[in-house]
Simulated assay, not measured.
Amino acid sequence: MTDHGPQPVERQLPTEESRDLLALVRDLVQREIEPVAAEEEEAGRFPREVFRLLSASGLLALPYAEEFGGDQPYEVYLQVLEELAAARLTVGLGVSVHTLACHALAGFGSKEQQAEHLPGMLGGGLLGAYCLSEPSSGSDAASLRTRATRDGDTWTLEGTKAWITHGGVADFYTVLARTGGEGAHGITAFLVPGDAPGLSAAPPERKMGMKGSPTAQLHFDGVQVPDARRIGDEGQGFAIALSALDSGRLGIAACAIGVAQAALDEALAFTAGRRQFGRPIADFQGLRFMLADMATQIEAGRALYLAAARLRDAGLPFSRQAAMAKLFCTDAAMRVTVDAVQLLGGYGYTADFPAERYMREAKVLQIVEGTNQIQRMVIARHLAGPESR
Rank of each mutant, 00 (worst) to 15 (best):
T174S: 01
L157Y: 14
T154Y: 05
A177K: 01
Y130R: 09
R147A: 15
V175F: 14
T149K: 11
A129L: 05
E182P: 01
G123C: 01
S143N: 12
G125F: 10
G168D: 08
S136R: 13
S139E: 02
G194L: 08
T156P: 01
G123S: 07
A189G: 00
Y130H: 13
D140E: 15
H185M: 03
L132W: 12
G125Y: 09
E182C: 03
D153V: 15
T154R: 07
H185F: 03
I164E: 05
T188K: 12
W155Y: 15
V192T: 07
A177P: 03
T160A: 02
R147Y: 06
G167E: 11
D140P: 10
F172Q: 09
G159S: 07
G181H: 14
E134M: 03
L132V: 12
L127K: 13
H185I: 01
V175R: 10
A177Q: 02
F190C: 12
A148T: 10
S136W: 04
L144Y: 11
G124T: 13
S137M: 03
T174K: 00
R178P: 09
A141E: 09
S143W: 04
K161E: 01
G194W: 10
G128W: 12
G125I: 07
A177Y: 01
S137Q: 06
F172D: 07
G168F: 04
A170K: 04
G198P: 05
V192S: 09
G186N: 06
I164D: 02
G123T: 03
G180I: 00
A177C: 05
G159N: 08
G124W: 14
A170W: 05
G194C: 11
I164F: 08
E134K: 05
A189L: 00
L132H: 11
A142L: 06
L176T: 04
I164V: 14
T156A: 08
T156G: 02
T179N: 12
R147F: 08
G159D: 05
G181R: 15
G180L: 02
T149D: 11
G198Q: 07
C131K: 00
T179E: 14
S136I: 05
V192R: 11
T188S: 15
R147K: 15
F172C: 10
A141Q: 08
V169M: 14
S139C: 02
T188F: 09
A196C: 13
F172H: 12
R150S: 04
R145G: 02
T160S: 03
A189M: 03
S136C: 03
G186K: 06
R145P: 00
L126H: 07
R147E: 13
G138M: 14
